[in-house]
């Protein structure tokens, strides 16, 4: 038998290359591969028939067919890569998202403004070495008043100011968190440093600036040689932490039954004014004595911060009722 007709080889090349180029997707390409490179393809038949040729012709024809197979295989591979690239590009184009729009979010709950401000205030004092103490909201009058140097006929104990649970048994809704200070002093000897956050009550009707329930963080520090300088230093640290590093505090003489000397404490504003923020003073010796602490040996200071007042000043809350009404629009702002 003679060798292979080069014209046949050329035809197979043409047909194979054309089929691969024409394949529009992976399936068509596979079909073309089977048709032109598969075992039953004409190329395969030709190669199978090489055995019938004489040695020289076989060598020449084999080389020719191997060359053709390599060429077609490479062409198939090129086409496969090209098709895959096109497919990926199409998918990526189809998956395009416009991420410049508003992102859809998981909806988190929000802590209440009063909780945030209270926690922030407590954190400031915790950082200054104060522990955190808790106590009951329905409280014995003796802890809320008597031991704080507020005698039975004091005007603050009248029903105009204090909400009573039981007048005869002298059980009240605490009017400040000072009774927690009393309980702290009765429970453990000095030195003591605590802040007492919590709800307190006054017999005030609800309006834009009054609430029968509000929130205080009171503080107490009793140790040896505690002075008014320590009080001012502590409150300065508080004012700067809560309102800004440039703030100053001003102490003005005032009166509270449970402190002597007493002071109203103002915090400076950005425009050079002063805002009344809290009351403070050196613990009255009568209070120390009533709570079993020797005032000749120990001294201390106390302060009371209105959380609502701080929240309203700092966040521009205009109506205290907004803090207790739970309007979702208000809640969402903080």
């Amino acid at each position: 038998m003679e060798g292979i007709d080069p014209a046949d080889v050329a035809r197979l090349r043409e047909a194979g290359l054309a089929a691969f180029t024409a394949a529009a997707d992976a399936d068509a390409l596979e079909e073309a591969r089977v048709a032109h490179l598969g075992r039953k393809a004409p190329l395969g038949a030709l190669q199978k028939g090489l055995g019938a040729l004489d040695a020289d012709a076989r060598r020449a024809a084999g080389a020719l067919l191997n060359e053709l197979r390599a060429e077609l295989t490479a062409a198939h591979e090129d086409r496969r890569v090209a098709l895959e690239g096109a497919e990926l590009a199409a998918r990526l184009a189809a998956e395009r998202l416009d991420l410049t729009g508003p992102a859809r979010r998981p909806r988190p709950g929000r802590p209440h403004l009063l909780t945030q401000v209270e926690a922030e205030i407590v954190d400031v004092f915790a950082g200054l070495g104060f522990a955190v103490a808790d106590g009951p909201e329905v409280e014995a009058g003796r802890y809320n008043f008597d031991l704080l140097n507020i005698p039975p006929d004091h005007p603050a104990r009248g029903t105009m100011d204090t909400i009573y649970v039981d007048e005869a048994a002298d059980v009240v809704l605490r009017t400040h968190t000072s009774p927690v200070q009393v309980r702290t002093m009765l429970a453990a000897p000095p030195p003591l440093a605590v802040v007492c956050p919590g709800r307190v009550y006054r017999a005030d009707a609800v309006d834009a600036t009054h609430s029968p329930v509000f929130t205080q963080v009171e503080g107490l520090l009793v140790a040896q040689d505690v002075t008014m300088a320590h009080l001012r230093g502590t409150l300065l640290a508080f004012a700067r932490a809560m309102f800004g590093p440039d703030r100053e505090v001003r102490l003005r003489p005032s009166f509270f039954p449970f402190t002597e000397p007493s002071a109203e404490v103002d915090v400076s504003t950005e425009d050079g004014g002063w805002l009344e923020v809290l009351g403070a003073g050196m613990v009255d010796p009568a209070v120390l004595t009533a709570c079993g602490i020797d005032p000749d040996r120990w001294s201390g200071f106390a302060f009371g911060i209105g959380v609502e007042r701080v929240a309203m000043l700092r966040h521009g809350v205009r109506d205290i009722r907004d803090l207790f009404d739970g309007d979702a629009r208000f809640l969402a702002a903080f």
């Binding site: 440093a193 140790a223 230093g233």
Partner: peptide
């Protein structure tokens, strides 16, 4: 203004 020492 003077910060008090840590007392507790």
């Amino acid at each position: 203004p003077v910060l008090p020492p840590l007392v507790a």
